[in-house]
Simulated assay, not measured.
Amino acid sequence: MVDVLDLRKLRMLAELERLGTIAAVAQTLHLTAPGVSMQLAALEREVGLSLTERNGRRLTLTPAGRLLASHGRSLVEMLSLAEMEVIALQEGSAGTYRVAAFPSIARSIVADTWAILRENPELGVRIELIEMEPEDSLPALAAGEVDIALSHSYSNLPATLSPNLVTAPLASETVWLASRADPSDPSDVELAGYATADWVVPHRNWSCYEMVQRACGLAGFTPRIVAEATDFSVILALVAAGAGVALVPQLTVGQLPAGVTLRSLTVPVVRYDTVVTRQATAADLGAQRILALLADSAGRLVPAPIGSGDGH
């Protein structure tokens, strides 16, 4: 018969499955590596099963280890949820919340929300911003490094959602074709007409890059890429310089360079902005207050997308 399992040890096991090394677990949990090793060895003795095995320089979990790690994650989340709900009931929750956001939404929706919080200190909550692309912010959210993540997906590139995270819609942005201004061009354009054009695209590690590839692919061609950039202002500056054309979501256009025009697509592409939290954070009243303010800012700052069909 197994004694009552220690939640701390189960959390260490869950972190080991996620991180792969004792040293990484120790750093994350602010412990020593020998201490983590001793606790995991004690857990193996308590359950009478091998929970880990060596795989090169990494430790991998046995089937029994993976099962216990899964329960460990669930129990930690449930305990965190219970603590948050007690705090919410006792004092309405207040404090500082770490928000991860990609640049275009950080400088618009997050900045607007920040101004509202500064002007209304009686709301009792504050935010801290960490600029991150969704490819980085969602893992950071799952790991507990941030409390709220602002993410996005595209109508031609659906998001892969984690069952352990809570996602809510925030805004929908039209994706425009940015090109050198030409009075002879129609207001709506078919991407197929740009099959022989040079293209300026986002960095290939971003989902925005894949969005461009898929949009062009559906139009029957592979874009001839002449430049990649991590900043949409750089992309627009290169379009203004005549380097090529680009696809740009609404919020990325902080200031349109002279000589550049934005045109809608006959086959629309929409970027869906979302706000993502862990289950425990979603129950926190302070976080709910911030989410409501973000939604209000989005409603005022982001016009309804053109031709979206409300597909979100």
Rank of each mutant, 00 (worst) to 15 (best):
N205Q: 07
A64V: 05
G144N: 09
W206K: 05
V76H: 02
D112C: 15
A143T: 11
D112I: 08
L170N: 00
Y209D: 04
A101R: 00
L138F: 05
R57G: 07
I116P: 01
P158D: 03
T252V: 13
V267Y: 00
P34D: 01
P121S: 13
T174Y: 01
M211Y: 03
G299D: 12
Q39C: 06
V36C: 03
L40T: 00
L16N: 02
A101F: 01
R289P: 04
S137Q: 12
L293W: 05
A292S: 14
P163A: 03
Y154D: 01
A14P: 01
A195G: 15
E119N: 11
E122A: 04
G124N: 07
G65V: 10
A197G: 09
V36E: 02
S80I: 04
A295R: 12
R57E: 13
G95K: 01
A195S: 15
P249Q: 06
E133Q: 13
I148N: 00
A282H: 06
Y154H: 05
E91C: 08
S151Q: 04
L218V: 13
M84K: 10
G20K: 02
S93F: 11
D188L: 14
E53C: 11
V47D: 03
A246G: 08
L68A: 10
A258I: 08
M84D: 11
E46N: 09
P303G: 10
A142C: 11
A41G: 11
R57K: 14
G286I: 00
A246Q: 07
E131R: 12
E91S: 07
R73Y: 11
S50H: 12
V245L: 00
A219G: 12
L129I: 12
V267M: 04
G20W: 02
R73G: 13
L117M: 14
L29I: 02
G254N: 06
S108T: 15
S162F: 02
G217E: 13
L170M: 07
L43T: 03
R98V: 12
M12R: 09
S108C: 07
G95R: 02
L247Q: 01
A282K: 06
V4K: 05
V99R: 00
L79M: 13
M1E: 15
V253Y: 01
G56W: 06
V110A: 04
V302D: 11
S207N: 09
A24C: 07
A282G: 03
A142I: 11
T160L: 13
S184W: 00
R118W: 03
P103T: 12
M1G: 11
M132W: 08
R204Q: 14
R8E: 14
E131T: 13
H312F: 14
R66A: 14
G95V: 06
A42L: 15
V267F: 03
V200E: 01
S162Q: 12
H203E: 12
D6S: 06
R54F: 06
S308D: 14
H30Y: 07
A283G: 08
S155M: 08
L238W: 10
E44C: 01
L301I: 14
T252L: 02
Q250H: 14
L265Y: 04
L138I: 12
L294W: 00
R45A: 12
D188W: 10
T196F: 00
L61Y: 10
D310S: 14
L218D: 11
F232T: 00
L61V: 06
W199T: 12
E145D: 10
